[in-house]
Amino acid sequence: MSARPMTHLEQLEAESIHIMREVVAETERPVMLYSIGKDSAVMLHLAKKAFFPAPPPFPLLHVDTTWKFRAMYDLREKAAREAGMALLVHRNPEAERQGINPFDHGPLHTDMWKTEGLKQALDLYGFDAAFGGARRDEEKSRAKERIFSFRSASHRWDPKNQRPELWNLYNARKAKGESIRIFPLSNWTELDIWQYIYAEQIEIVPLYLAAPRPTVERNGTLLMVDDDRFPLLPGEVPVARSIRFRTLGCYPLTGAVESEAATLPEIIQEMLVATTSERQGRVIDHDGAASMERKKQEGYF
């Protein structure tokens, strides 16, 4: 035969597209959780491909905490507009009222804005299926996560009650009130993501690229002072450092790395010789190896 065999990236792309089409065909109200990070960017790009020439037949949902980097909010609107998709933004009104923030409330911040916020949004709009950009290579407990992950009506994840996934046959049937989280990027690695962004020229938040930015160092983590809500400790003065982010979340919770890599190839080059794994930058993961799993059982995405 003349055609060359598919590359591993083409195979991953086809698998993700297959998954998205199954969800759209078999669920009533799907939504794509859009967190504005690089994985979300790839997931959105794949959705555009899966349903071309139609726009993806579902909205984007951003569960906002009000504490994302400003550059993320900028890209959010643009990405949705260019994809021709509706963008829904949900902020937990209770967290907003109580002024929950990452500086004063620690884990409660994630819990109320993200965990509770996500549940509220799904209930509010009646979504029965939500795409998420999590990958199995991110963290040990994710290695066993299914591509279709079932949640009870109260959004709990029961590790003992998940369905076996054979071939590319996904069982999307569920009882009323139950919902599914679907992870079309399950089999992608971080390098696959970067390689794909580079090959397909997908727009990402500029914070992934190094630039001089105001920073302070706390407990060995470099934090960016993104706006004047950042409470400086006595004697603390923001210092301009050339930094970039390997992962993006709430700015006070996301550690930067010092880097001169200002272009995508340089990032990839740095990544290929990297010696620390991706999630080290997330302050949230520092409380124990099994914590992610506990969060998942509670409904944190």
Partner: peptide
């Protein structure tokens, strides 16, 4: 620098393209 990185990454990805799964 950016040019060197681009050249290296391009070469690396060209090799990766031949990779199977």
């Amino acid at each position: 620098g950016a040019d060197a990185a681009r050249a290296e990454v391009d070469a690396y990805f060209a090799a990766l393209q031949q990779k199977s799964l």
